[in-house]
Amino acid sequence: MQNCTQETKSVPKLDAAGRIVTETQFVGLQSYAAIVEPAKAWAAITALDYRALMAIDFWRALRFTLMFTFITLPLVLALGLGVALAVNNTARVLRGPVIFVSLLPFIITPVIGALAIRWLFVSDGLLNNGLEWMLGYPVSMFSQGWTIEILMMFFRVWHVAPFAFIILYAGLQTLDHDAIEAAMIDGASRWQRLRFVIVPHLAPLIIFVALIHLMDAYRVFDEIVGFRADAHVISLQYLTYDFLIPDSTGNRSISRAAASSMLTMIGIVLLLIPLLRQTWAQHRGSR
């Protein structure tokens, strides 16, 4: 009787000097395809299968990144303008302290701020315990995606609104008081003054703040790391970072990381085009 055993082994090809033979070949856009997975994504889109689309990391990250950017943008502008108007209307003696306090969130390093928020809201955190005590049932903010996303947006708005505030507040100082008085004599309400005098005056600054915020928000990364959110929510920048972390065999996916960061950059440029066109048009018009 004879026993046969079958064995498969993978052995690296070695050259005469005993070094592993390596091969270099041009892969074209293969790295991009490996991230975007166009065939799988198209199949999911045509079948209207949202879950299948979200199973692809890139689309999952893009979904969150876009949502994060577009939800925080108006909130940052509105809060910034609101605080600027409020400060502008407070008594002169109080302005210094109020400006100082309003700027505090902007001074904090984003990662540290994110960690602080996480520790406040993690399962045995101070505010989380407070919430549980108030509501009477257990709350866990970090056990599902949507609560994490809300916390992230809250954190970003809280953190960036002071920037919008200080720029718009500076703009308010250049407001022509004659125009406001004229509007008041014409019987314009507070809202109408804001809508037709103040906002048009601040428009270039609002566009500037929006530009900066779009660029910043599209690069959302600190929140993902600080909140340990990667199990539930990831962003495009996090995806790049994730590719760069070596796996258990020591490999880093450098090509895919490069492709992913290129895609992030292209995304930012696409987002900025409408705003840039508008400022360009204004610039040309004012000449």
Binding site: Q144, S248, T249
Partner: peptide, 23 residues
Amino acid sequence: TTTQGLMHSALGNQLQAFFTASS
């Protein structure tokens, strides 16, 4: 082994989708 390392990394990167999806 290298294959076990690849396996472990792939599992670590993908498993959370199972926990978040089936919830």
